[in-house]
């Protein structure tokens, strides 16, 4: 019997949500995990030198977790790369280093600070370093000869990302051409590229923020502590709660106060805001995310507020 005749035997009534809501049925997380593992295996198998962008942020942590499953019982056969803005939270760097050591992996760090120190990059007037990551990222890709670069970006994060392929071609300048993307058919991912080009690969393309958190809960994945509620000295600027940091100096009229906060994303401390939250556990965070009325980036990322097309413009230049 072929699968098609079997398919027609399955009547709609027997496979409605009510009929198949039994625990044995495939969950959304099962499907997303299987897809992510498939993407990782496919891209690594066709890569000359793959790399996973790893910042210690929750999405990159989940990508790395999927990689450990995809290549079990071997170590992840991929290097990690962190583009360090020099503005990272200490907890995140500690977490990053501990994770790399635990899994026995090799970490490369591209330092924005060293680019600023030797004059290749100039500090922006607003102090934000996220846009400065692009050049060190592209130099690291070219310098190490990476041809397949895994990132944790999700399509639900932002409107321009919603149009990005799972496997996304970058030219010699790292540029993304949104009007000339390859069609991506079935689960047949095309990672081919010319010398000098590379592909970015996004195994979490189809995940939402809630999926990521539910998966973190299901798998018991450890995250940097600042994802969970803690007391912190913060002050308000441009509608965001920032924490004092060597990169974030208080201006006239700004004063800190202790509040119970957590971070929804952990990027550059100068432009990543905290949210007031009492969510101290994964379950608390899931309840909060499920109920939240503000998108992840809109609430806490100043760099995406620069213009309606801020992300599209940065992506075209080779950003993550």
């Amino acid at each position: 019997m072929t699968s098609t005749t079997e398919r027609t035997d399955v009547s709609p009534t027997s496979t409605t949500a009510a009929g198949l809501a039994a625990p044995a049925g495939p969950t959304t997380l099962d499907a997303l995990e299987a897809e992510g593992i498939h993407i990782l295996r496919e891209a690594v198998a066709t890569a000359r030198k793959p790399v996973i962008l790893f910042s210690g942020g929750k999405d990159s942590v989940v990508v790395l977790h999927l990689a450990t499953k995809a290549f079990w019982p071997g170590r992840v056969p991929v290097e990690l790369l962190h583009v360090d803005t020099g503005h990272n939270f200490d907890e995140v760097i500690e977490f990053r280093n501990a994770t790399v050591a635990r899994l026995g992996l090799r970490l490369q760090v591209a330092s924005v600070q060293s680019y600023i120190d030797d004059g290749r990059l100039r500090e922006r007037p607003d102090g934000t370093r996220n846009p400065l990551q692009t050049v060190p990222l592209l130099d690291a890709i070219a310098g190490h000869g990476y041809d397949v670069v895994f990132g944790g970006a999700r399509r639900d994060e932002e409107k321009a990302r919603a149009k990005e392929r799972v496997v996304s071609l970058r030219d010699e300048f790292g540029q993304w051409d949104p009007r000339n993307q390859r069609p991506e058919l079935w689960s047949l991912y095309n990672t081919r590229h010319l010398p000098g080009q590379h592909v970015r690969v996004f195994p979490l393309s189809n995940w939402t923020e809630l999926d990521v958190w539910r998966y973190i809960e299901r798998e018991g994945i450890e995250l940097p502590s600042l994802y969970y509620a803690h007391e912190r000295e913060v002050f308000e600027r441009d509608g965001m709660l920032l924490t004092p940091h060597p990169s974030v100096k208080l201006r006239d009229g700004e004063a800190t106060a202790p509040r119970i906060v957590r971070y929804r994303t952990v990027g550059d401390a100068s432009c990543t805001g905290a949210v007031e939250s009492g969510a101290a556990s994964v379950a608390d965070v899931i309840a909060e995310v499920a109920a939240t009325r503000i998108t992840e980036r809109g609430a806490t990322r100043a760099d995406d507020r620069l213009s309606e097309a801020a992300m599209e413009d940065r992506k075209k230049e080779g950003y993550f």
Binding site: L20, P26, G239, T292
Partner: peptide, 19 residues
């Protein structure tokens, strides 16, 4: 806006199937 605006009706229960 800094605090998360919570709506009581939100459903955090895991959903079982994907279409």
């Amino acid at each position: 806006m800094t605090a998360l605006d919570l709506t009581p009706a939100a459903d955090a229960a895991p959903v079982t199937s994907l279409l």
